[in-house]
Design a protein around this nucleic acid. Structure first.
Length: 428
DNA sequence: AAGGAGGATTTTT
DNA sequence: AAAAATCCTCCTT
């Protein structure tokens, strides 16, 4: 365990440079989220056109039924291994799942249930597997108090490594580089690696450990890549730049609203009004907590991730292109021009492309045919409203706009019409 | 009650 | 002018 703890510390930058403190913090948050199952908080069912405010269910571990993944994941890890292909999606789902609305748990606080790797991801990331029949005897996940995130994280890693190291290498190579930035090679000289106190931990680097570390780095690269992609998507959806420093007050407000809705945080209201990006970035975690007692720290953690991403972008691609870091991200926006207002159908498609972030409010029923279902109409409408600065947006109005697409031949009802189910006429 | 179809009108970009 | 937003009536599930 100690040996592994050493390698986990190497969670860090994808470039040869050391990661900032906040970078580490951000990765820690990623890892934290990695272990939080998506959709943990029960769906809030707002009435049409109205929004549930307040009274959001708090993180109540004791009152929640223990979902199957929790019972099986920890004590019965990875006996039935999926084929590499599937593991890939597993890993990305886990990674992307970090960004999943996982409820309002306080970042940095370890709850035992965080130890559970989302078993659902191991079988089918799209499924709400805790709704499936779970005939296995309930295990007491809490009986593993010593087993921290690191052990868990490495369990995932071990699974990948022992099962198919070659595949992992392949995946790491094939991992889509984060927008525009050159995918850094796996570190080869430990000299430049950010502080690893492996010696202090009595770690002797055997061949095993070296390979382990290398693969771990690749996993980390994937993590970072996925996070950057998530941020890119969020930028598209929100119409803001990736670098928080560039945000104006409106952008900040949008980001706050979006984040709190996406992660179903308690609403902070206007606590962050009239702050521009620079102000926001200069605030400490304590400042955040003061503005919002309930979720200031979570917001801070998210902002930290964004800041780190922007930081990494800057370091990794020092203006070798004609584009700045921010523009690089934007150049990836292919489905619509950056200046043009986003269309509703584009917005919906973007949401659908990120099932692990938005899968609980909208998802594909049949991606090939372009059939999708809006699972949480109020939530989708809310997100659309945030995007368009239309606080009064609701599903009534959103659906009217969708119906306008009928005669334009963009969206239609599927052959067998079902509630909240639509179909893109031209699926990609 | 929530969703669906579509007309009419206004607003935003 | 296009695309939404808003409002509304009637209808279906």
């Amino acid at each position: 365990m100690k040996r592994r703890r050493g390698s986990l510390k190497k969670v860090a930058p994808t470039s040869g440079t050391n990661l900032s403190r906040s970078g580490y913090t951000a990765i820690a948050h990623f890892t934290h989220r990695l272990t939080s199952p998506p959709g943990w908080i029960p769906k809030t069912t707002g009435a049409r056109g109205t929004h549930q405010t307040g009274d959001r269910p708090a993180w109540e571990p004791d009152s929640q039924p223990s979902p199957p993944y929790l019972r099986t994941a920890v004590t019965e890890p990875f006996t039935a291994l999926a084929p590499p292909q599937r593991l890939h999606s597993t890993l990305s789902s886990a990674v992307v799942g970090m960004g999943s609305p996982a409820g309002g748990q306080v970042a940095g606080t370890l709850h035992p249930s965080h130890l559970a790797f989302a078993e659902s991801s191991l079988t089918d990331p799209e499924q709400d597997s805790w709704e499936l029949d779970d005939s296995k005897p309930a295990r007491d996940a809490l009986a593993l108090p010593e087993r921290g995130l690191q052990g868990l994280y490495l369990s995932c890693f071990d699974m990948l490594f022992t099962e198919d190291a070659a595949w992992l290498l392949k995946v790491a190579e094939g991992a889509p580089p984060a927008a525009g930035s050159p995918r850094p090679e796996p570190r080869k000289d430990p000299e430049q690696c950010p502080v690893i106190d492996s010696q202090a931990l009595g770690l002797s680097l055997g061949l095993d450990a070296q390979m382990e570390e290398r693969s771990l780095e690749q996993v980390q690269s994937m993590v970072v890549g996925e996070v950057l992609k998530d941020i890119e998507t969020a930028c598209k959806l929100l119409n803001i730049t990736p670098d928080p420093m560039e945000w104006n007050a409106g952008n900040v407000q949008k980001w706050v609203l979006w984040t709190e809705h996406l992660y179903r945080l308690p609403q902070v209201g206007k606590a962050f009004q009239d702050l521009c990006g620079k102000d926001l970035c200069s605030m400490s975690e304590e400042d955040f907590r003061q503005r919002s007692l309930q979720c200031g720290d979570v917001l801070y953690a998210h902002l930290d991730i964004w800041k780190s991403a922007a930081w990494m972008k800057e370091r990794c691609s020092p203006g070798d292109d004609k584009l700045t870091a921010g523009e690089e991200l934007w150049s990836e926006a292919d489905s619509f021009c950056s200046g043009q207002p986003i269309h509703l159908w584009q917005f919906l498609r973007e949401l659908l492309l990120k099932p692990h972030s938005y899968g609980r409010c909208i998802r594909w029923l049949n991606k090939e045919k372009g059939i999708f279902k809006i699972e949480d109409s109020a939530h989708v409408a809310r997100l659309w409203g945030i995007r368009k600065n239309r606080p009064a947006m609701n599903y009534d109005k959103l659906s009217r706009s969708i119906r306008q697409y009928y005669k334009k031949g963009i969206i239609r009802k599927p052959d067998v019409s079902q509630r909240l189910v639509y179909q893109f006429v031209h699926p990609v």
